[in-house]
Design a protein around this nucleic acid. Structure first.
Lengths: 163, 163
DNA sequence: TATTGTTATACTCTATAACTATA
DNA sequence: TATAGTTATAGAGTATAACAATA
């Protein structure tokens, strides 16, 4: 299992790690802030964003959020009570409920996405070539396996996509 | 106040934004997981990490966490009840309390840091030059103002470091 | 009077366990 | 019996408002 520790004390690596931490912190801030502007919590905004792509079963939502299904009930309840989401019965299996955005919910989700300037705006200061480089480096960070070398089969990253 | 929208539909930019979202999600997961391995919540781990750098007043902690000071009371209470942190009186101003890690707390904080492999391990697959490029690109994302010159002296980002 | 930290309160998110209605 | 969703419960983080001690 050789844990291939990456010389944690390498100054350059530490610097990059810290920068990533800063990006993460900043991104989260902006996300919560954008959600709050629509009087939504982070979790509610995430669910609304997910459902704006496609209706989902309660259990699927829980899986995407990486939380227990019982929690989804309340989150969808609150979105539903505000008319942003609705529950639909599944004709094939009457145990299943599919949550789906309403027209208003879809609109809110779109506004929410547009409000996320942090990740997009600073990118404008980068040239097209630089963005390509950044894309490739980030992609390799997310799936280290492609390098064909180093290690861990750990593949199947199945895109967290939550945030 | 021209809102300088960055052509939100540019496919390349969208791709990078999505990658950043994935990195953020993955980093957060790993952080929470590392915290949980020490039976700490994310907030507790963040405070412990902050205090491991230097003792802080309750209000300062709140500022770093970007939350209300009243919340810090409970978080520090829980850390203190586990012997990871202690409150110290400030001789100069008796209203002030400084929270500081205990020896055990410092050790836990160090283990916590070592447990954060995500940001560090994938970086090993990048060459030194690539890491330099990544560092510069991330730095520019975090301080778009420097646009003129390429290499900001990483100027005092005051590291949110929370995450 | 202003500031520091705390308490009190209410809401949301979270996990766990038990329940229902289906299958 | 197993599964989908819910309810019930408890712990934690959060914001707001009010309070004590100190400045």
């Amino acid at each position: 299992m050789a844990r291939t520790r990456t010389s944690p004390t390498d100054p350059l690596t530490l610097e990059v790690v810290q920068l990533i931490g800063s990006v993460v912190a900043r991104y989260y801030e902006e996300y919560e802030q954008a959600a709050a502007q629509h009087a939504l919590t982070g979790a509610q905004a995430r669910v609304l964003g997910l459902l704006s792509l496609a209706p989902m079963r309660m259990r699927e939502i829980a899986h995407e959020l990486k939380c227990e299904p019982s929690n989804v009930t309340g989150i969808v309840d609150r979105l539903e009570s505000r008319g942003l989401v609705e529950r639909r019965a599944d004709p094939a299996d009457r145990r299943v409920k599919r949550a789906a955005v309403t027209a208003v919910g879809a609109e809110t989700a779109a506004e929410l996405r547009d409000g996320l300037d942090f990740a997009r705006e600073p990118l404008a200061t980068l040239s097209r070539e630089e963005r390509v480089v950044l894309r490739d480096l980030l992609a390799r960070m997310l799936s280290p396996d492609v390098s064909g070398t180093t290690s861990s089969p750990s593949g199947a990253t199945s895109s967290p996509s939550g945030a």
